[in-house]
């Protein structure tokens, strides 16, 4: 064995609590959720109450301002449990970071705390039926019209797609401009 040195003692304590939560609140129900095709929505709120969603979020938005190793601990424990129905990784590691890094103050105030609590579940919609690897080739458009964007197109393989309250949609705001015409819209 090569001992792992990346984690501190507090990460390992956190790990024990995540593991216990998964054993008590997730594993006994996962088989049923597989039949249902989705996990119980309430689980998101339970996980949020424990601080297992977006631990890196700023304290002013209800987060723990934890370093990414806490996300890694959650990812590892979820993976270890074999409970593949949990879309927490997409939510915490991928989508909410877009809000944290590129959102306006108004957007952050409106959404991040609810994402930490599990009241808002997020998803990201990049892939389309006609294009996945070639992200520059997306065809969904968002055309400005007065105070709105009007979105047309379709997206596929969207993790958390059923539970999602907030989706980051990758669209073309300037369909002629290739990558430079691509924008992210909530």
């Amino acid at each position: 064995m090569i001992p792992r040195t990346v984690f501190e003692e507090e990460h390992e304590m956190f790990r024990s609590s995540v593991r216990r939560f998964l054993e008590e609140e997730v594993m006994p129900y996962h088989a049923q959720w597989e039949k249902d095709g989705q996990v119980d929505r309430e689980l998101w709120r339970k996980a949020g109450a424990q601080g297992y969603l977006v631990p890196q979020a700023p304290e002013i938005y209800g987060g723990a301002e934890a370093d990414f190793r806490y996300n890694a601990v959650i990812d590892e424990e979820v993976s270890r449990s074999g409970c593949t129905g949990l879309g927490w990784g997409v939510h915490s590691d991928i989508v909410v970071p877009y809000l944290m890094n590129y959102g306006s103050t108004a957007q952050k105030e409106r959404y991040i705390a609810a994402c930490v609590r599990g009241d808002i579940v997020t998803a990201i919609a990049m892939t389309e039926p006609g294009t996945g690897s070639d992200l520059q080739g997306i065809r969904t458009t968002a055309i400005a019209d007065g105070d709105d964007y009007v979105i047309n197109g379709s997206k596929t393989f969207i993790t958390n797609g059923q539970h999602a309250d907030l989706i980051v949609v990758v669209c073309k705001t300037d369909p002629g401009a290739g990558a430079a015409g691509t924008s992210l819209i909530l």
Partner: peptide, 19 residues
């Protein structure tokens, strides 16, 4: 148990502040 889905947008209006 993963709710991976297809999404369709047909003239969906969102306010510009959602950029």
């Amino acid at each position: 148990a993963q709710d991976t889905s297809e999404l369709f947008f047909s003239d969906v209006r969102v306010p510009k502040e959602n950029l």
